[in-house]
Design a protein around this nucleic acid. Structure first.
Length: 317
DNA sequence: AAACTTTACAACCGCTCAATC
DNA sequence: GGATTGAGCGGTTGTAAAGTT
């Protein structure tokens, strides 16, 4: 894409030290690194940089290898199926690009991140729906929906956009019942506290859409039963925490049942203690009675369902 | 055709975490 | 237990290429 800066790659000697090169990699550097990696394999990156005769820091070599030179990289445009999968995974995992990348063979976290930021995010944003407030809502009005994604305007973060598919579902959770509008949609919008695209929780989507039409186009639907849950549910945000970390903070996460109030809607990313009102009047064992701990929701099980994206011949770890 | 704007993505930066000393 | 080092991650930047005016 970009041509290497003719001056950028030149070694510069400052204070008798060869200054490490920065910027775009030249084909020669690529060749050196590639050759070295193929003959010696991966090791200490700073050693690799030195031994391969590159005036690059190990970090730079690592990045170049991982994001560009690795032989198993797919490269090229993302196919629609991959797009869908990214959207799906992002709705579950948030900005955990590396985790998303592990589920997209041949794609790197950087690639996916760039694709998301430059293309998908914008596309979702542009597909702003035309949701009207409950009082004057027009259910016949078409809604812009792309593959189960319900973008919102930046200025309207708290406005939940409903797909007619969802709103016509007979298995509608209390969030939307007929013209009833969830006053606290953010609880069901696991993504984007910063105001770009806004996605439903995948499980929420499922509860709304899976019973009727498939939410994920040709890839089939994710059935709550398959992901270790028997009914409606929602996921707390995962941003800025690994799954392991999330499990570690199990005890700080309270999801208390409270039949008549959607109380406490604070989902600040920095506040890991969420009290979630009884969004759905659930009776399944995950929601009954006492606190639901985060570890009880089966993220791995959820991720297992990626296997329903049959276009990919891989299995989720 | 030139100037300007937008898009796409490679690469860098800063941070965290884990291993080692 | 603290310091150091390396790996890895996510956010951000820089810029070539493409598109538009």
């Amino acid at each position: 894409m970009r041509k290497p800066d003719p001056n950028m790659g030149k070694d510069r000697v400052i204070n008798n030290k060869i200054k490490l090169r920065k910027g775009l990699w030249s084909p020669e550097e690529d060749e050196k690194l590639m050759k070295y990696m193929l003959t010696n394999g991966q090791g200490c990156w700073s050693d690799i940089a030195r031994n391969a005769g590159l005036q690059r820091c190990g970090k730079s070599c690592r990045l170049r290898w991982i994001n560009y030179l690795r032989p198993d990289l797919k490269r090229g445009a993302f196919c629609p199926q991959e797009e869908q999968l990214i959207i799906h995974l992002h709705s579950i995992l948030g900005n955990r690009w590396s985790q998303i990348a592990t589920r997209l063979p041949g794609r790197t976290d950087n690639e996916i991140k760039n694709f998301w930021n430059s293309t998908l995010k914008k596309r979702l944003k542009n597909n702003t729906c035309t949701f009207s407030p409950p009082n004057n809502s027009d259910s016949s009005e078409p809604r812009d929906v792309v593959g189960g994604i319900f973008p919102v305007h930046d200025h309207d973060m708290m406005t939940l956009c409903m797909d007619s598919t969802c709103s016509s579902s007979t298995s509608m959770p209390p969030m939307v019942t007929g013209n009833q509008f969830d006053p606290f949609p953010v609880l069901n919008n696991r993504y984007d506290m910063t105001g770009t695209a806004c996605l439903f929780d995948v499980p929420t989507c499922l509860t709304q859409g899976a019973m009727g039409e498939a939410f994920y186009g040709d890839f089939g639907i994710l059935e709550p039963g398959k992901i270790g849950l028997e009914g409606d549910f929602s996921l707390p945000p995962l941003e800025s925490r690994s799954i392991e970390e999330s499990n570690a903070v199990n005890n700080s996460i309270e999801m208390k049942s409270n039949n008549n109030h959607y109380n406490n809607t604070c989902l600040s990313n920095t506040d890991q203690s969420y009290k979630v009102g009884d969004m759905f009047g659930l009776e399944n064992h995950h929601w009954q009675g006492e606190n639901l701990r985060m570890g009880e929701w089966d993220l791995e099980g959820l991720m297992d369902n990626i296997s329903s994206f049959t276009f990919l011949d891989f299995h989720v770890e």
